[in-house]
Simulated assay, not measured.
Amino acid sequence: MRMIQLLRLAAQAEALRWKRTGRGYAMQAGLGAAAAVFALLLLVMLHVAALIWLQEDRTPLSAALIVAAVDLVLAAILGFLAARHAHDPVAIEAQRVRDDALRQVGDTTARAAMVLPLLRSQSMKKGLVGAALTAAVVGLMARR
């Protein structure tokens, strides 16, 4: 019964981890899309206004270079915000719970594999050797 509860707990923790990780990626993609839309639409209006304003005192070429420098700064700031990836503490904890539950399932399985040959064996010596070999194999499989 405990093994089933541990497996259920591991499955729930894994589902929560995937849900939270997916939510983080969706937020990151949304921020990137918003940054792109903002960069395209707002900068078009800023270009027009800045070029008109800057051409009063400067040549059209120098006005265009100033606007391009401002575009570069805005794109760098928005790109940095979109590329930033913070780890979700709930997803990390869910992964730890899943790993602990699966480790306990492996330990329980190893113990059961060690005891079962003893119960089935006619001779105690033969049962102990079989139990030791089975426990070693299950232990190696559980660590992978």
Rank of each mutant, 00 (worst) to 15 (best):
R20G: 10
Q55S: 12
R120Y: 13
P60Q: 02
K125E: 14
Q55F: 00
A36T: 10
L40P: 05
A29C: 03
D107Y: 00
G32S: 12
A63R: 03
A113W: 02
L65Q: 13
A68M: 07
L54V: 06
A26L: 13
Y25L: 08
I52T: 09
L43P: 00
A68G: 07
D88S: 12
R84Y: 15
Q5C: 03
R120Q: 11
L78K: 05
H85Q: 15
G32Q: 01
D71T: 04
A50N: 01
A110T: 15
D100R: 10
Q104D: 14
L116A: 14
L78Q: 04
H85S: 13
E14T: 02
G30A: 06
V97A: 12
L51Q: 03
L102P: 05
A50T: 12
G30L: 07
A35I: 03
L78Y: 04
V67T: 02
L72N: 01
G130F: 03
I66E: 04
G32K: 00
R120K: 07
A68L: 14
S62R: 04
L74I: 15
L118M: 15
D100F: 02
A82E: 11
T21N: 03
F38K: 05
A34N: 03
L7M: 11
A110H: 02
A36R: 00
I92L: 15
Q28I: 01
A110G: 08
L46E: 10
A131H: 08
Q104A: 11
A64H: 08
A101N: 04
V105H: 09
A15P: 00
T109K: 05
L16Q: 11
A26S: 12
A34G: 13
V90A: 14
R20N: 10
L40F: 09
Q122R: 06
L43H: 01
E56D: 05
A91W: 09
T59G: 15
Q12D: 09
L81E: 11
K19M: 05
A63T: 09
D99M: 13
L43Q: 03
A69P: 02
D71Y: 07
L119K: 00
P117M: 12
A94H: 05
L51C: 04
T21E: 09
D88Q: 11
A101L: 07
G130S: 13
